[in-house]
Design a protein around this nucleic acid. Structure first.
Lengths: 239, 239
DNA sequence: TTCACGTAAATTGCATGCAACATTGCCGAA
DNA sequence: TTCGGCAATGTTGCATGCAATTTACGTGAA
């Protein structure tokens, strides 16, 4: 910890490749997504500087980036806090994501290359495998990747960009969707249909399948999150 | 609500209200929108530091923000350049904006308060007045404000946020749309219908009117911009 | 000519010190 | 007690210096 020279090992876990700024941005994003930094909590510069072994300059740059991404909020002369989402906020984001996929689905069905279709098929196969292994983490990531790949197949850079950003904002609230096995199984079946519709370039069908998929997933996730939140409120009011 | 940022030069003793970081971010955004910083050109820190009379720290923070907004691009250890849009890039953004308004229109028709409807009616009246005065600048800003207000009436914070961000990205390319009087007149008539549909809460109609409005506006703007670009290429500013 | 290479200049990335602002805690008055 | 004000502490905002990297340039060889 005391060695602050240019050693490659700053911590046993992560090597800071690229710029410090980008490195710490990604690190903080992960910490927020994973819940290491709680919603609504203050984010102290000094604490993070010591914890992450970097100086304040790149950290503050990361703050600015994350603020623009909608993950933290900075009050001038006061400090940064992790943005606290209400369930309605998340729902609003989902509504936006559905809208974006609505545009993307039809365009993707028109414009996708065969390679892109194959890629989604491959990701889907791997996702099914993850499901069968009950590997929730891999499943989750592959799931996200499939959606992003379909969007990307629309060949609209602005769309890809906005979609990715909005996904990142609410990622931390979407784990909860597939916690019970029955919903999870249903989600996999939905994905099966989605992958097929995409492979057949059936834009309108793809669009509707995606919409239904998101709505169903969010309903489950919302309920799970509300349970969590209720439990939290009862358990940990010791902050 | 006058033109507040149409100032040109930075006096030696500026009034940087708020943080320097926020101040310089807005300044740079305006400079890009206005074309003071050309598309594709390098953005040198030292030059801006001298020109804007601030130090490198807030400037570099502004760079990070603007990069996340999609206005500039930063290459590590090399520097920042103003993002150069192709016509297809702009069209992609418009496609996204249309998609966002599609979601927004129906929700806004359902959820708008009477105050919000009145506000749009008032903005519309002022926009018509600007048109009759041939005040293109005011017209343009009121136009943007109307669209944003309709979106805001959907009461979806994520949507408002994303829409505003995407508008800001391509603002500099949308001036060209109403340069010939006939298109401008037609745009005003379209806005008349839009305002009415909104007032009557006719969601689907509003959605279609907005889509048609954007497509028509963009077609004109694209042609105008392509003419400009062609002329530029001939005039020859190569560097 | 063109290419290669090494050095100098310019530019960026980051750490750190200082000043400004906000927050906390204490003390006294009502 | 409660409230207001003031000092002490902590935190943020910014300027600046230094190291690392890139870019520009000049020299020489093929």
């Amino acid at each position: 910890m005391q060695s602050k020279s240019m050693t490659k090992q700053t911590s046993p876990t992560e090597p800071p490749r690229g710029t410090r700024s980008a490195y710490v941005t990604e690190l903080l994003r992960d910490m927020i997504t994973r819940g290491d930094l709680e919603s609504g909590s203050r984010v102290n510069e000094r604490v993070l500087v010591e914890q992450l072994n970097i100086s304040r300059t790149p950290l503050r740059e990361a703050f600015k980036i994350l603020e623009r991404e909608g993950l933290i909020s900075i009050q001038p002369n006061v400090g940064a806090t992790v943005v606290a989402f209400t369930m309605d906020d998340v729902e609003a984001s989902i509504e936006v994501l559905i809208g974006l996929e609505t545009i993307g689905a039809e365009r993707a069905a028109e414009r996708a290359t065969q390679d892109e279709i194959d890629k989604v098929a491959e990701l889907h196969a791997r996702m099914v495998a993850a499901f069968e292994d009950s590997d929730l983490m891999s499943y989750f990531h592959l799931n996200q990747e499939i959606h992003q790949n379909i969007i990307d197949a629309a060949h609209n850079p602005a769309l890809s960009r906005v979609y990715a950003a909005e996904c990142a904002r609410i990622r931390r609230f979407r784990f909860a969707g597939n916690r019970d096995r029955s919903r999870w199984e249903r989600a996999v079946r939905e994905h099966e249909q989605i992958a097929e519709a995409f492979a057949r370039r059936e834009g309108p069908l793809l669009r509707e399948l995606l919409r239904a998929h998101h709505i169903a997933g969010w309903q489950k996730a919302r309920r799970a999150l509300e349970d969590d939140r209720g439990a939290e409120d009862k358990a940990g009011s010791s902050s």
